Computed example of a mutant assay.
Amino acid sequence: MIRGTATSPEKDEPATLQVAANGFEPIARVDFDRARDLIQSRRHVGPRWLVDPGPNSDQLEELLWLAAAAPDHGRLIPWRFVLVPAESRHLLGRAFALALLDRDPGASEEQLVTAREKADRAPVLLVAIACTVSDRADVPPVDQLVSLGAAIQNIQLGAVAMGFSVGLSSGRAMDSMHVRSLFELAESERAICCISIGRSVKSNGVGRVRPNVDVRSLPPPPLSSLRCTTSSRLLALGSSDWRSAAPNAARSARRPIRPIPLMPTFITLI
């Protein structure tokens, strides 16, 4: 297995956000409309409908930068992505076929061929790996899986913005001993899904029916249920030490701005 840390491209300094008296100014309506249209235009496209060209190395790195922007409670980076290049797809296909034989020893040769072909259907194939930790009581595993889901969604939306189509696929084979061995997964790691990216040869159609958004006004809680508690012990921002402070210190404290780490995720090549 070859491991390599993706390097950061040269970036311009981020634009300074304009801060109003009561916080950040709202995003321009035209920007919201573009973001809304992008999100709503995303459609699942099965891997068999995806053809060349897929994202090049620069575009793939940009997509990983978007993944790195996902919410991450505790800054654990509880996920990574594995790039399966074309010359290694047969290894994943073999793992899929062996997993099928484990589930169904009587599987036909045609079924085994279909299982192997699932690994060779898209120009770019990423495998999303969950790397959850269990020794952080303040960051439960479900929070960590939410981070992975957000990272996957960021990759999907970024790929759509680049003009590609994306499909997610999973199944029982992802948790098989053969796939786990291929990706050398640790006990706490799990292969969640495949992310296939390419150009679609299938019409987007009308897409699936989206759920209705029913926004209802809830009555305010009774005043007797509202309680305000304060503590004279406040966590010093930016350090692990505790310090004494007045109860209103939290109102004026500001979390220090920390630099964004250079690509806190890496691609593994099998």
Rank of each mutant, 00 (worst) to 15 (best):
L269D: 13
K11M: 14
I129H: 10
P140D: 07
F164P: 02
V51D: 11
L269F: 15
M162R: 12
S196Y: 05
K11L: 15
A186Q: 15
A21V: 11
R34F: 02
V30H: 15
C131V: 04
P26E: 11
R254A: 12
A70Q: 03
M1W: 11
D12E: 15
A249I: 10
S134K: 08
M162Q: 14
G158F: 01
I77W: 10
R199W: 11
G106S: 11
V209D: 03
W79T: 02
R43G: 06
N248I: 12
I39E: 07
L60P: 03
K11F: 15
P211Q: 14
I77G: 05
L262W: 09
W65E: 01
V19L: 13
R180Q: 10
R121T: 04
D102W: 01
S239L: 00
F183Y: 06
L145H: 15
E109A: 13
E109H: 09
Q156G: 05
Q18K: 11
A191E: 01
A67D: 01
E61F: 07
A70L: 01
K202F: 06
E13D: 12
E25D: 13
D12S: 14
I197V: 11
V133K: 13
S8H: 05
V84S: 00
N212K: 12
Q111G: 06
A69E: 09
D120K: 07
L17I: 11
V179D: 07
V166T: 09
S176M: 00
A186W: 02
R136C: 05
F96I: 08
G238R: 01
V127C: 06
G171S: 03
A137E: 13
P55V: 09
T114G: 12
H178Y: 10
L100S: 07
A130H: 05
L64F: 02
R43M: 06
D31S: 08
R251W: 15
T230L: 12
K11C: 13
V51S: 06
P259C: 07
G46I: 06
L63A: 10
L60M: 14
L157K: 02
R121G: 05
I129P: 03
R75L: 01
A67W: 06
L235H: 13
L64G: 02
R136V: 05
L145M: 15
E87R: 08
A151Q: 02
T229I: 09
A21T: 10
I77K: 14
L168N: 08
P71G: 04
V209W: 03
A250K: 12
A119D: 04
S217A: 03
G205W: 08
D214I: 12
A246R: 11
M263Q: 05
R255D: 00
V146E: 08
C193L: 11
C194W: 15
R255H: 08
G158S: 04
R34Q: 12
G46M: 12
D12R: 12
R80T: 04
R116M: 13
N56W: 03
S134L: 11
R43Q: 01
G149S: 05
S88W: 09
D138K: 01
R199Q: 15
P26M: 07
V127A: 10
I2E: 13
E117Q: 14
T229E: 15
G205Q: 07
V139G: 04
Q59P: 04
A150Q: 00
L234C: 14
V142P: 06
A68H: 01
C131P: 00
L101R: 15
S231Y: 01
D138C: 03
A246W: 12
G149F: 00
V201C: 09
E109C: 00
D72N: 10
E117C: 08
G74T: 01
